[in-house]
């Protein structure tokens, strides 16, 4: 079966103050429909850069990305903007991910308007439906983003990502900034959405324990390279690389 996403030999270096920093070095991976791939690594390992390259927010120097059989890096202008509906993103800090002036309704209406998913008259109803899908009351729609709690805000961010009916959602540390009691709920919501919609996730995190809960497979990154990739439980049980071993050992366990 053709994978949803195929990434081949991506490379990217940043220049910072005269020094060249390798952010991505020969990165290749594939992702199936309805599958979750965890992207784990220490800070500076390139996992966030990879996420941003997949979203066409950062251009790689070389390599190929095939998304639903299409050359994803060749898309330009209007064609790219239209196709962006297929790949959506949820950010780490839900407060920073929304225009400070936005209301929940306006944030959710934007993607519906841009992609012509719903006419002007239909939009309020669709916004209400999106809110219900992420477990929020449609009554919240007129509220400003900064007025609701962090967990509610992240639910709105997920609703915004769902608005365009994407086949892939990139979650960049999407639960790291949330309170522990909220984090579990958001993970449950993401898993439930995947079960009903068959959406694929790329779940970027520095916490292998959280990744294990939600990801079928995991790619361990270090210094811009994927050093190890495979079925999540297997890698946690028998980490093959030093990076994976350190990440597994660093997870705090409850000492009862």
């Amino acid at each position: 079966m053709q994978p949803l996403l195929a990434v081949e030999n991506l490379a990217k270096t940043f220049r910072s103050g005269g020094r060249r920093v390798t952010a991505l070095d020969d990165v290749s991976l594939t992702l199936g429909r309805g599958e979750t791939l965890g992207l784990v690594g220490p800070s500076g390992s390139g996992k966030s850069t990879l996420a941003r390259v997949l979203l066409r927010l950062v251009a790689p120097e070389s390599g190929r990305i095939e998304m639903e059989g299409e050359d994803w890096l060749a898309l330009r202008g209007k064609a790219l903007r239209e196709r962006r509906a297929r790949v959506q993103m949820v950010f780490q800090d839900p407060l920073a991910a929304f225009n400070p002036r936005a209301t929940i309704a306006s944030a959710l209406a934007d993607p519906l308007r841009i992609h012509g998913t719903a006419g002007r008259a239909e939009r309020p109803r669709r916004v209400g439906e999106l809110l219900e899908r992420v477990g929020l009351s449609p009554d919240l729609a007129p509220r400003a983003i900064h007025e609701v709690s962090g967990g509610q805000r992240q639910r709105v961010a997920i609703a915004r990502a769902l608005a365009t009916n994407p086949s892939l959602i990139v979650l960049d540390e999407a639960v790291s900034a949330l309170d522990v009691s909220v984090r579990g709920r958001i993970l449950e919501l993401l898993a439930a959405i995947q079960k009903t919609d068959g959406v694929s996730y790329i779940f970027v995190s520095h916490d292998v324990a959280v990744v294990r809960v939600i990801a079928h497979r995991v790619a361990i990154m270090d210094a811009g390279r994927i050093v190890e990739m495979g079925e999540t439980e297997g890698i946690i049980r028998e980490p093959g690389s030093a990076t994976a071993r350190a990440l597994v050992a660093a997870v705090p366990r409850l000492h009862r």
Binding site: E35, V180, A215
Partner: peptide, 19 residues
């Protein structure tokens, strides 16, 4: 109790079926 239950480590239940 709820805080302890919300802690995620390698003993936490997974939310996905193996692919």
């Amino acid at each position: 109790r709820s805080l302890i239950a919300a802690h995620i480590d390698f003993a936490s239940p997974r939310l996905i079926e193996p692919a």
